[in-house]
């Protein structure tokens, strides 16, 4: 019992120490979006995932102590076409009943230059987990114009997900020249924290 208790105390201390210098931010869901765009024959079709949550710990002064955990509910896909969205939820693409969430867990955050940062972590979509290196812009926190008791910040990132690498589709629609493999993802968020 004693070693277990020790381990528990050390774990708790380590956990809090690791993010102690990073501020916790709460996503403002009304002003945050997860958008994507994929080629359809000639045009680009765009959509959103409207249900997502994140644990954000970040301080631009100590980026190495920051942490980003992102979870997106696959069922919330919205391309403004109900039937297409249900097809995207099916086994042909996301198989949302079996794999309801897509996740990203950061492992390292480093400063590149100015307000640009590098984010390293593991992305899980369906049954595939892959290491991803992303870049994001972190906008300097400022007092919220409508709530003087809060800080507001923003962040934006864009990256490409090769959907077939994550088993989102079996390549049938790519071979037919209908749906592209590269999915352009843009995540734009506003986050708040108490002063």
């Amino acid at each position: 019992m004693k070693p277990l208790f020790k381990f528990f105390i050390i774990f708790i201390l380590f956990f809090f120490a690791s993010t102690a210098n990073a501020f916790q931010w709460d996503i403002d869901p009304d002003h945050s979006e997860v958008r994507f765009e994929v080629k359809h024959i000639h045009a680009k079709v765009s959509g959103q995932f409207t249900d997502f949550k994140a644990d954000l710990f970040f301080n631009p002064d100590t980026p190495d102590q920051g942490k980003v955990d992102f979870t997106i509910a696959v069922k919330s896909v919205n391309t403004h076409n109900g039937k297409r969205d249900n097809h995207l939820r099916s086994k042909d693409f996301f198989d949302s009943d079996k794999f309801p969430n897509m996740t990203f867990h950061s492992s390292k955050i480093t400063h590149i230059k100015d307000n640009l940062y590098a984010l390293e972590g593991m992305m899980t979509i369906k049954d595939v987990t892959q290491k991803m290196n992303l870049e994001f812009i972190f906008f300097a926190p400022q007092q919220h114009p409508f709530d003087t008791q809060k800080w507001v910040t923003g962040s934006t990132t864009g990256f490409v997900v090769p959907r077939l690498d994550f088993h989102v589709g079996d390549g049938k629609f790519l071979k037919m020249g209908v749906v592209g493999n590269e999915v352009d993802v843009t995540i734009s968020i506003e986050a708040l924290r108490d002063k």
Binding site: G82, H87, S90, S96, D97
Partner: peptide
């Protein structure tokens, strides 16, 4: 659609 039931959203009102 492999029995994926559409979510309870207003846009699926005809269904």
């Amino acid at each position: 659609d492999h029995f994926v039931f559409f979510p309870f959203e207003s846009r699926y009102w005809p269904e």
